[in-house]
Design a protein around this nucleic acid. Structure first.
Length: 751
RNA sequence: GGGCGCUUAGCUCAGUUGGUUAGAGCACCUCAUUUACACUGAGGGGGUCAGGGGUUCGAAUCCCUUAGCGCCCACCA
C-alpha cells in the first residue's frame, strides 16, 4: 500500500446508510470506466508493459445475450481485470460473428412469417439489406448487454467477422490456401440441407434417434439377391449390389450384371465385391446408391459405377412416372413400398431405431447429394512457412492435421481441463476434408471467378465444369470481360477461425499483431472445441506458422435448475438482463463463477444470485462500519506499529491473498471467488470486526490505532482482490473512500 | 460400435495431483434483536464419499470391477 487516501469526510460514511443499490451504481461506474480510456491498453499508465491478450469469442448476431455469453464475459473479465491490476498491458478485444447460416435463416423465418416471402422472392440484394438491418439491431443489443455485465473490453478495437478488414483476411487466406493446393473444388457427396438450401459441414450435423422401418426386398422377381434398406426411394438410383468377397452365398454372382424395372424406373445393377459390406447385417447384400450415400459414393469410385442422381435439392424425386416424379422422398417411399407389396417383392418389414442426420441450424433432414463444392484438404502436405510450430521445421512439409496435432500434443497449447485433449485428438483422427462453401447469400463470397462456365449449377445430375472454363482465384476480381464470381459464400467458421489475428489487422503487418499475438488465453464453451478452437489452431498455424493462443480454458454449459439445456423451445432460458435488474451484475457474475469448474456443466438458480446480492451489501456495510468506528483515527498507509494480535491477522491475511492469487493464476476462479467470500464475510466481518467493537470501546489508544489501521488496509485489500469478481461494487466503494482520486480498476494487485 | 466424464450433506457443488476429525453455499432447527449490516448475528443437526475388491503406514483421491446417469464421435446400408 502506498498512495491510497481514505477520505474522512462525514458525507462519505453517510452514503453507506442506505443499502447498496446496484441498479443505480452500475451504469454510472461503467460510464466512468469507459471515459477513463483504460479499457484500451494504449491508454494505460507506463507501469503496464508486458502484454496480456484475450480475444472475446464473437457472439452471433442472431439476437440477444444468454447466460453462456454472461459466463464468457465474466470469466474473461476476471482474467483481464486481474492481469491489468498486476501491471500487464491488457488487451481484451471484443466483436461479433455474422454467423452466416444462423443469421440468414433467422431473418428468412421472420420474413416468411411477416410477409410470406422467400429469399428468392426478395433476391440477393434485398435479402442482404434486410439481414444487415437485423444484424445492426442485434449487434447493438449484444454490445449494450455486454457492457451491463461489466466487461472491460477495448471497444475501440471492436471487430466483426464480416467487416471489410476481416473480409480482406478471409480472401487472403483463401488465396494462399488455393495456391498451396489446400483449397480445392471437388464433386462429391455432401451434406445437403433441403430446408436451408445449402451444403453444411460434417460438424454441423446433429443426429437424432428416430424409429424407422427396415425393408427387405428384391428389385424384381428374377433378381437373384435380396437387399435391405430404410430408404427404398433411393433404390431407383442403385447401380450395383455389393456383397462381401468371401460370402459363399453370393460369390457366384460377383461380376454379373442385371437389368430390372424398379417401380417403373429401368435400372442396371452390377454385382460387386467389397470388404466393407458386413455379411451378417441384413441380407449381407447392399444396394449401392452412389449419388445418395457417402459410403456408396466411395464404392462407386472404386468400382467405376455410374452415378445417377434421383433426388433433387428440394428432396423431391427426379425420376419415374407420375407416381414418383416430383414427390417428396417420404411420399415416394410409401409409393415404392406399396409397389413392392403389390408385386410380391417385399420380404420383410422390421421396426428399427435409426439415427437421422439433421442440420444443426434449420433442423432439416440431411439429403446426401453429389455436388461441386469447395473443400479444405486436411491431409495434404504443403510447405509451412515461418513455422514456430513444435515439431515442424520452417519450410518443412506438413499437413493441416499435423499442425492441429503437434501444437496440442507437445503442450505448446494447453487445454484446461486437460482431459479434453483426448476428445480433441479423437476428433482430429476422424477428421475429413472440410467443406467450406455454402449456398447462402449472407457471408464472405468465395473469391473465385469463372469464365465460359456452362451453367454449372443448373445441370442437376452432372455438376462439372466444362473443359473451356477458366478459373481465377485472387484477393481482387480479375480484369477483363466475362468473369462471373462464384455464387457461394464461405462457412462462417472459416472467418471466425482467423479471429485471433484478423482482429489485429492481418494481413497488414500491424504493431498490434506483433505485440499481442499469440494471445494468452482463449476462453470458450467446450461445445465449440471442434467448430472453432480446432479451426483457429488450423488457420493460425497455416497463415502465421504460429499458435493462436497459449491456453484454452473451456467452460461448461449453464443449464436450468433441473439440469436441462436452456432453449427457446423449452422456454427455460434465463435472461441475464433480468438477473442484472433484480440482483445486480456483480451478484450475477459471482453466481456464474463460484462453484463452476472448467469443463463441467452447472445448474442455474436464482437463490445463488440472491446470496451474492446479500454479499455485496455485506461488503457495503463492512465499509460503513470501518468508516464509522473510531472516527478520530485516520488512515496512514505507512503505519507500522501494529500490536502482536494484529500482526498475526496481517500474516494470515497476506497468506490468504497469496493463496487466492495462485488460484486465479491457475484458473481456479470458482475457488478464489468462494475463498474471498468466505474470508470477507466469515473471517473479516464475523470475527475480526466483531472483535474490534470491544477494542474500539476500550481506552487503549495504541491498540485502537493498530486495529483501525489494520481494518483500513484490509478493506483496501478486499476491495482489490474482489474487484475482478465484483467490479462495480468495489469500484463504487473505492470512489467513495478515495474521493474519486484514483481508480480501483488500475490499482496495484496487493501481492 | 469407439471415446470422455460424472456418482461426496435435503439441494447445488468443491476437495490443488494420497496425509489430522471430509468442506462451502443454499435449505433446515434453536437462540439473539433500539446491533455496521434482517440483504443480520451466535449456535446446531445432517455424509458407509454409488457398490465390491485391491495397492498403501494411510484412499473421496491410485488400480481393477459392477451398476446407474450424462456427453461427444462414428453412422450398418
Amino acid at each position: 500500500m502506498t498512495d491510497e487516501k481514505i477520505s474522512e469526510n462525514s458525507h462519505v460514511a453517510g452514503k453507506f446508510l442506505k443499502p447498496y443499490n446496484p441498479q443505480e451504481t452500475e451504469p454510472k461506474i461503467y460510464k466512468m470506466w469507459e471515459e477513463s480510456g483504460f479499457f484500451n491498453p494504449d491508454n494505460l499508465p507506463p507501469r503496464h508493459k508486458e502484454k496480456y491478450s484475450i480475444m472475446l469469442p464473437p457472439a452471433n448476431v442472431t439476437g440477444v445475450l444468454h447466460l453462456g455469453h454472461a459466463l464468457t464475459l465474466t470469466t474473461e473479465d476476471i482474467m483481464i481485470r486481474f492481469q491489468r491490476m498486476r501491471g500487464k498491458k491488457t488487451l481484451w478485444l471484443p466483436g461479433t460473428d455474422h454467423a452466416a447460416i444462423a443469421t440468414q435463416s433467422k431473418v428468412e423465418k421472420i420474413i416468411k412469417k411477416e410477409e410470406d416471402k422467400s429469399r428468392y422472392d426478395l433476391g440477393r440484394e434485398e435479402l442482404l439489406r434486410r439481414i444487415n438491418i437485423f444484424v445492426k439491431q442485434s449487434h447493438d443489443t449484444i454490445i449494450s448487454q455486454s457492457k451491463s455485465m461489466g466487461a472491460s473490453c477495448d471497444w475501440s478495437r471492436e471487430a466483426f467477422t464480416l467487416d471489410e478488414k476481416r473480409n480482406l483476411a478471409v480472401r487472403t487466406v483463401f488465396k494462399m490456401m488455393y495456391d498451396d493446393g489446400l483449397i480445392y473444388r471437388g464433386n462429391r457427396i455432401v451434406n445437403w440441407d433441403p430446408k436451408g438450401q445449402t451444403v453444411i459441414s460434417d460438424d454441423e450435423i446433429v443426429y437424432e434417434e428416430r424409429p424407422a422401418k427396415f425393408y427387405t426386398f428384391k428389385y424384381s422377381k428374377d433378381f437373384p439377391i435380396s437387399i435391405s434398406t430404410t430408404r427404398p426411394e433411393t433404390k431407383v438410383g442403385d447401380t450395383a449390389v455389393a456383397v462381401h468377397p468371401e460370402d459363399k452365398r453370393y460369390q457366384k454372382y460377383i461380376g454379373k450384371e442385371y437389368d430390372a424395372v424398379f417401380c417403373g424406373v429401368p435400372i442396371h445393377i452390377k454385382i460387386i465385391a467389397d470388404k466393407s459390406v458386413e455379411k451378417d447385417f441384413g441380407t449381407g447384400a447392399l444396394g449401392v446408391t452412389p449419388a445418395h450415400s457417402m459410403i456408396d459414393w466411395e464404392m462407386g469410385l472404386k468400382n467405376n459405377l455410374p452415378v445417377i442422381q434421383v433426388i433433387d435439392e428440394k428432396a423431391r424425386m427426379m425420376v419415374g412416372g407420375e407416381n414418383l416424379l416430383g414427390k417428396k422422398v417420404v411420399e415416394a417411399r410409401e409409393v415404392i413400398v406399396e409397389w413392392l407389396k403389390s408385386e410380391g417383392l417385399l420380404e420383410k418389414e422390421e421396426e428399427i431405431k435409426q439415427n437421422v442426420s439433421t442440420a444443426e441450424r434449420t433442423g432439416g433432414i440431411i439429403e446426401p447429394l453429389p455436388k461441386l463444392q469447395w473443400f479444405v484438404a486436411v491431409n495434404k502436405p504443403f510447405k509451412l512457412k515461418n513455422s514456430k510450430i513444435n515439431g515442424i521445421k520452417n519450410e518443412q512439409e506438413a499437413t493441416l492435421k499435423e499442425i492441429m496435432k503437434n501444437t496440442v500434443q507437445d503442450g505448446q497449447i494447453k487445454i484446461i481441463p486437460d482431459y479434453f485433449n483426448k476428445t480433441y485428438f479423437h476428433w482430429i483422427e476422424n477428421l475429413n476434408d472440410w467443406c467450406i462453401s455454402r449456398q447462402i447469400w449472407y457471408g464472405h463470397r468465395i473469391p473465385v471467378w469463372y469464365r465460359n462456365e456452362s451453367k454449372v449449377k443448373s445441370q442437376k445430375s452432372k455438376e462439372k465444369t466444362n473443359s473451356n472454363t477458366e478459373i481465377y482465384c485472387d484477393i481482387e476480381a480479375p480484369k477483363g470481360e466475362g468473369w462471373v464470381q462464384d455464387e457461394d459464400t464461405l462457412d462462417t467458421w472459416f472467418s471466425s477461425a482467423l479471429w485471433t489475428f484478423s482482429t489485429l489487422g492481418w494481413p497488414e503487418k500491424t504493431k498490434d499483431l506483433a505485440f499481442y499475438h499469440p494471445t494468452d488465453v482463449l476462453e470458450t464453451g467446450y461445445d465449440i472445441l471442434f467448430f472453432w478452437v480446432a479451426r483457429m489452431i488450423l488457420m493460425t498455424g497455416y497463415a502465421l506458422g504460429d499458435i493462436p493462443f497459449e491456453k484454452v480454458y473451456l467452460h461448461g454449459i449453464i443449464r436450468d435448475s433441473k439440469g436441462k439445456k436452456m432453449s427457446k423451445s423449452l422456454n427455460n432460458s434465463v435472461d441475464p438482463t433480468e438477473i442484472i435488474q433484480k440482483f445486480g451484475a456483480d451478484a450475477c457474475r459471482m453466481a456464474l463463477i463460484v462453484g463452476n469448474t472448467p469443463g463441467t456443466d452447472s445448474k442455474w438458480s436464482d437463490d445463488k444470485v440472491k446470496a451474492y446480492k446479500n454479499f455485496a451489501n455485506k461488503i457495503w456495510n463492512i465499509t460503513r462500519f470501518i468508516l464509522d468506528s473510531a472516527k478520530e483515527i485516520s488512515y496512514d498507509p505507512d503505519f507500522n506499529n501494529f500490536t502482536d494480535e494484529d500482526k498475526k491477522l496481517i500474516e494470515e491475511r497476506d497468506a490468504f491473498v497469496k493463496d487466492i492469487t495462485i488460484d486465479i493464476e491457475e484458473f481456479r476462479f470458482y475457488m478464489a471467488g468462494e475463498k474471498i467470500y468466505h474470508y470477507a464475510w466469515h473471517n473479516f466481518a464475523d470475527i475480526i470486526l466483531e472483535n474490534s467493537k470491544g477494542i474500539f470501546n476500550s481506552e487503549k489508544v495504541d491498540v485502537k490505532v493498530s486495529r483501525k489501521q489494520f481494518l483500513f488496509s484490509t478493506l483496501i485489500i478486499i476491495l482489490k482482490i474482489l474487484h475482478p469478481f465484483m467490479p462495480f461494487l468495489t469500484e463504487e466503494i473505492w470512489q467513495s473512500i478515495t474521493d474519486g482520486k484514483s481508480m480501483l480498476m488500475i490499482e496495484n494487485w496487493p501481492v
